[in-house]
Design a protein around this nucleic acid. Structure first.
Lengths: 213, 213
DNA sequence: ACAATGGGTGAACGTCTGTGCACTCAATCT
DNA sequence: AGATTGAGTGCACAGACGTTCACCCATTGT
């Protein structure tokens, strides 16, 4: 016996998740059929039920999996920010953060594409799950920002609003990166755009409540 | 005879467009079937072909229609900006612009929801059409911004990047407004968030290239 | 008055869909 | 050793799907 029973089951489950991720890449979960997935995996349609109750349940599992990738990215970004004890410039933080985003989007294309797509087009339960996860990310970002120098004038509400803006911009950047796959010059351009936008936002936030008319 | 022949055809065409817009509201175009649409309209499935070659062609027509609504909004925003001859504050421009966005999203919910959803989840041709239209909007916004006071330090590239950021934030605001339908307090909160974000971005842009570290 | 047009019909096709049910048989438990 | 479990099978069903074709018949152009 080279494989235990639970191992074999887990392997099939993984194959189903991978197949689903690939198959819905150019449409959406709502257009994905149980039979397509089973066919791709190499099992009979009814075998699918041994692992998931429905395509929607599969979708929720894919949400979990995708956000593991996204949180890994956030951890990397945070590690950069808190890197040395010496104070670093905002511009440096921005550049490193964008680089981290780009490399993670490359490494986990399918997961980021899944989130971007199903966020607006998935089954209601999937949409809601993604919305909730993103909200958690925004809250995490807000507490990170609170630790940065210069936020004395930022209220809790301002932090929430700023985090929301930054996350929105980064989600959009990820979407664009995904749809520009394999066009390096377009990607460099997008990267530069993201850097500039993030800097503008930070500068705006730093002058917030002091530079109003 | 109360209706001419072309009128009757146009009426059926409209009914198809409306039915499709409603039916794909809680899924996506890629999950919409020709038979569902025909059934809702009250014609036999084959009758569909008298008006469109495929669901995808229908989708492209819906893109056109939806962007008529979106451009009407942009026209309203522009009218506010260029309102009087007296110089108005950026804050006032922002407030009025956000109000205009909110009221148009209310009035044309289905169109804005369609754009937001199919932008990432529609058939490839539809996605591309939407991406292209949004890019045109960004260019228009860039030329509008160039006319505003204070942009002496903004290069053409800066304008493009700034427009992209603003459009992204507003698309996101529209998405949120749509998914918060019928919860007035959530809507007011979103409106306030959008206002603050837009102000932060403008302030950041105004300090751009002068307040860098 | 007559012929042509074209929006809408209705049946039929082959294919794909989700799901139910009885089954096998190797891995696991007792 | 023997009983149990459970992942995967195979068949069958009813329904939805896109598309074809020949067919109406009211509106139109002549």
């Amino acid at each position: 016996m080279t494989e235990t029973r639970v191992e074999r089951k887990e392997r099939t489950r993984r194959a189903i998740l991978d197949a689903a991720l690939e198959l819905c890449e150019d449409s959406s979960l709502v257009a994905l059929s149980l039979r397509q997935v089973a066919g791709r995996v190499g099992i009979v349609p009814t075998g699918f039920y041994r692992h998931f109750d429905s395509i929607e349940a599969l979708g929720l599992a894919l949400v979990d999996e995708s956000f593991v990738s996204l949180r890994a990215m956030l951890r990397d970004v945070r590690r950069v920010e808190a890197g040395g004890t010496a104070p670093v410039s905002f511009a440096a933080i921005v550049d490193r953060s964008v680089d981290t985003l780009v490399s993670h989007v490359h490494a986990q294309r399918a997961h980021f594409a899944f989130i971007a797509r199903e966020r607006t087009a998935g089954p209601p339960a999937v949409r809601e799950a993604i919305r909730h996860e993103i909200e958690l990310c925004e809250r995490e970002l807000a507490t990170d920002l609170a630790r940065l120098p210069g936020p004395d004038a930022w209220s809790a509400e301002d932090l929430r609003i700023l985090s929301n803006l930054i996350v929105t911009a980064m989600v959009h950047t990820a979407e664009s990166l995904i749809s520009s796959a394999g066009r390096p010059e377009a990607e460099r351009r997008l990267t530069q755009t993201a850097r500039t936008q993030l800097r503008m936002v930070i500068i705006g936030a730093l002058h917030w409540r002091s530079g109003q008319d």
